[in-house]
């Protein structure tokens, strides 16, 4: 049976993201009291895995690294149809950059019996880097294809996928096992169902801490991160804004006239 691992990040709800601050001491992002949700782009990775499972037999494991509250996100994935959930949660994992995150995920996946493929989202909505998928692949010594928009042939020893490039795509053949990052156009993620939530009652979430992974504290979290945030500078805008007042109609007329007189509209 095909064994698929999907890496999911619990990210702060975008609607409340303005409450995020940078910790002045550790320079890491603090995320106090902000509800965590599935990174929206990871839902496409999850959906790709679920669709492959619908076509053939597959076992899907979800792995998420995050605070204990990320357990809710793992639970939600189980309700969406994932078979097994693993939460990597340890204070030592905190403050990780992409490199340390990929390394920690690698150590976790390495503990699993046999893995045929790993799916990641294209990027995360909070850190906005796209590095975890390819870095994880490199640690796992697996090939990687980023920005996959379509799985043309999947399930066998060799898969064919279409991956986005500038103004087009490339058709890629991959020997398995492999890592894929999935774009947001690849599919429309399914929504939660009541029966899915009920089925998730019987599915377990395993939490692994630092000792479970058998790695040194120095190679994970903030300590294991090659990059650090060194300072924050405020950007001063060079523009002063004139708010155009009036009725809806007047505002439109005034704006058009202003743009014509500044020479940017004919």
């Amino acid at each position: 049976m095909l064994s698929i691992v999907v890496c999911v990040k619990a990210v702060p709800d975008l609607d409340e993201a303005d409450k995020i601050r940078i910790d002045p001491d550790t320079k890491a992002l603090t995320r106090h009291d902000i509800p965590l949700v599935i990174n929206p782009l990871d839902r496409n990775a999850l959906e790709a895995a679920l669709q492959i499972k619908e076509k053939g037999e597959a076992h899907i494991t979800i792995i998420s690294m995050g605070p204990p509250s990320a357990g809710n996100v793992v639970k939600e994935c189980l309700a969406l149809g994932v078979d097994q959930g693993i939460l990597l949660s340890d204070p030592a994992f905190a403050g990780a950059d992409a490199f340390a995150t990929a390394y920690t995920l690698y150590k976790a996946i390495d503990k699993l019996d046999s893995v045929d493929c790993v799916f990641c989202g294209r990027a995360s909505s909070d850190g906005a880097t796209e590095w975890v998928g390819p870095e994880l692949a490199t640690f796992l010594r697996m090939p990687v294809v980023t920005m996959v928009r379509e799985f043309v042939e999947a399930g066998g020893n060799s898969w064919k996928v279409k991956a986005d490039i500038e103004d087009g795509y490339r058709l890629v053949q991959v020997e398995m096992p492999a890592v894929f990052t999935v774009t947001h156009t690849a599919n429309t993620p399914r929504t939660l169902s009541f029966s899915g939530i009920i089925k998730a009652r019987k599915k377990e979430i395993t939490t692994w801490i630092l000792d479970d992974l058998g790695v040194a504290e120095e190679s994970v979290g903030l300590k294991g991160s090659p990059t650090i945030v060194s300072d924050l500078t405020v950007v001063e805008s060079k523009r002063t804004c004139q708010i155009i007042e009036g009725t809806l109609e007047e505002k439109a007329d005034i704006l058009i006239n202003k743009l014509i007189s500044s020479g940017v509209l004919l």
Partner: peptide, 17 residues
């Protein structure tokens, strides 16, 4: 319960979409 919150989330997603 956490599960009831998840039911609410599911129902909201369903209603909105």
């Amino acid at each position: 319960t956490d599960e009831q919150e998840l039911f609410r989330k599911a129902a909201r997603e369903f209603a909105e979409t």
